[in-house]
Simulated assay, not measured.
Amino acid sequence: MSRRGQITMTDDEVRAYLAGQKVINVASIGPNGRPHLAPLWYFPHEDGVATWTYGTSQKAKNFRRLPEATVLVEDGDSYEKLRGVSFEADVEIVEDLDEVTRIGTALLQRYAGAKPGDPATAELEAFIAGQAAKRIGLVFRPTKVVSWDHSKLGGTY
């Protein structure tokens, strides 16, 4: 088996990895044709990820023009610990206020340490209600996935 084959994560490993990380780097194409790169909080959604952003942000404008992205999640501070997932994705823009509110709730609960499905506090609901009208949801659906986990090599190169 090739080294590439040895370090590739299974679908279950990719899902577990995405569930354990906190920040994605998202590349869209700006109006000048150059990549626009932005870090975002996210939560796992179906086989991809979802998040929200201000409806007037550059990335929102870019996705309205071309709803495609490349997403990167990576970690590791030495070669033998490098892990990551990169995927090309179709991007769904969500503008329905109820759905944007659901996305915002799932996102902020994740970063507050709540479990999926836990009821939101009144304070969190009030904050999200104030934010949701200014935001759009973004759902990234992978079309091509590449992954790596160098720990699978057991310290050999």
Rank of each mutant, 00 (worst) to 15 (best):
F127P: 00
G48F: 11
E123F: 01
P116N: 04
T8E: 14
F43M: 12
A126F: 04
D96I: 03
S28Y: 12
V139G: 15
Y17H: 01
S78D: 07
G30S: 15
G20S: 11
P116K: 06
F63E: 01
L138P: 01
P116A: 14
P35A: 11
V73Y: 04
Y54G: 15
I29F: 09
S147K: 04
G130A: 01
V49Q: 02
P44G: 07
P44T: 06
I136R: 06
I136E: 04
S2A: 12
T101E: 10
G48N: 13
A19I: 00
V85P: 07
G5H: 04
S57V: 04
H150F: 15
S151Q: 14
E46W: 14
Y111N: 01
T70Q: 14
Y54P: 12
V26K: 14
I93M: 09
G48Q: 06
I128R: 11
D118C: 12
V23L: 13
K134C: 08
P35S: 10
L37P: 05
L72G: 10
I7P: 05
V73H: 00
D47L: 13
A120K: 14
A122H: 09
N32S: 13
P31D: 15
R110Y: 00
R64I: 07
E92Q: 12
S2Y: 09
A89T: 14
E95G: 11
G113D: 06
P35Y: 02
T101D: 11
G130M: 08
D98P: 12
F127S: 13
L108E: 15
P116M: 10
V26E: 13
I128D: 10
G137T: 05
